[in-house]
């Protein structure tokens, strides 16, 4: 069996893309000191609204835009409660995750008159890059949102390291009182990143529901938002490390699929992402200690 073939790398990117987009949202929140664990719910909400808008308009791009706007509004709940009203963001996020699960299932019955899985010929999926004329290996079978996700990693790194607002956002996250003392609007930065994370989760949901597949099914985020939260924690809030962490999960999933074919039990293949998380955490801790000892 040839594990390192183009279709394998392509499978890795497909599995990585929704997680990466959501994780970028989590990362910019983390930078400004908002621990955002509502990624799972926002991802699901994004997937649902993308399918609804695409189905209504017949345009996948309208679906992507609709998901971005709808999830921005959804993230507004988190931003209003956690930043303006100073509620515990963890508690609010748990509520939002449950709300997304119930609300999408309920609205699905209201709008489509059915539960479970919805698909229809009216539902437009995102085109692949190959269909748009860019027929290259690995990227060819992907939707245009996949290279967008990769470019957004570069953009996030540039924003955090090279721009005034990015550096200030980091200041807000590292020491809110000090940032406020030098005149930064702490709440403003936190509102901004929480809402931007909503947009990114909307894109993640659109990629999942219109890119990876062309349908909506209840609970289809299936833990990808939680994997994104873990990726943010593994990354040490650095965009390129975040990309590596997300790719690691994509590889774990794709390798797991292949190893199943080679006879590894499904349960063991399922455990792969979690084993990789543990190993990565241990390696990161060991590397951190060695660096401190050398210093």
């Amino acid at each position: 069996m040839n594990i390192l073939e183009w279709s394998f790398l392509s499978g890795v990117l497909t599995a990585t893309a929704p997680v990466l987009l959501a994780a970028l949202g989590g990362l910019i929140c983390q930078v400004a000191g908002v621990f955002n664990i509502a990624l799972e719910g926002q991802l699901l909400w994004g997937a649902f609204t993308a399918v609804v808008v695409s189905d209504l308009t017949g345009s996948a791009w309208a679906g992507v835009a609709g998901a971005a706007v709808a999830t921005l509004l959804f993230a507004g709940l988190l931003s209003a409660a956690a930043v303006s009203l100073r509620a515990d963001p963890i508690v609010v996020a748990v509520g939002l995750n449950l709300l997304a699960l119930g609300l999408t299932a309920f609205l699905m019955r209201q709008i489509f008159g059915s539960g479970g899985t919805y698909t229809s010929p009216d539902l437009a999926g995102l085109p692949t890059l190959a269909e748009l004329g860019l027929d290259v290996p690995v990227l060819g079978p992907q939707s245009p949102l996949v290279p967008v996700a990769l470019l957004l990693v570069v953009a996030a790194a540039w924003w955090l390291g090279r721009t005034r607002s990015g550096l200030r956002a980091r200041g807000v996250g590292q020491h809110a009182e000090a940032a406020a003392a030098v005149g930064l609007r702490v709440g403003g930065y936190r509102h901004g990143v929480t809402l931007a994370a909503g947009v990114l989760c909307g894109l993640a949901g659109a990629q999942l529901a219109l890119g990876n597949v062309t349908l909506f099914s209840e609970g289809m985020s299936a833990g990808r938002g939680w994997i994104a939260v873990v990726a943010v924690m593994l990354s040490g809030v650095r965009p390129y490390r975040l990309l590596l962490a997300c790719l690691l999960f994509g590889i774990a999933e794709a390798v797991g699929f292949r190893l199943q074919g080679a006879g590894l039990p499904q349960q063991a293949a399922d455990a792969a992402p979690y084993v990789i998380t543990l190993v990565a955490l241990v390696l990161a801790a060991v590397a951190g200690r060695r660096r401190r000892e050398n210093a």
Binding site: T117, V213, A222, E253, A254, Q266, A269, D270
Partner: peptide
């Protein structure tokens, strides 16, 4: 096998 967190309703993994 689909497996994962939602094995009976994960079309993305089933497709992969």
């Amino acid at each position: 096998y689909v497996g994962g967190n939602n094995p009976f309703s994960d079309p993305a993994r089933a497709k992969s």
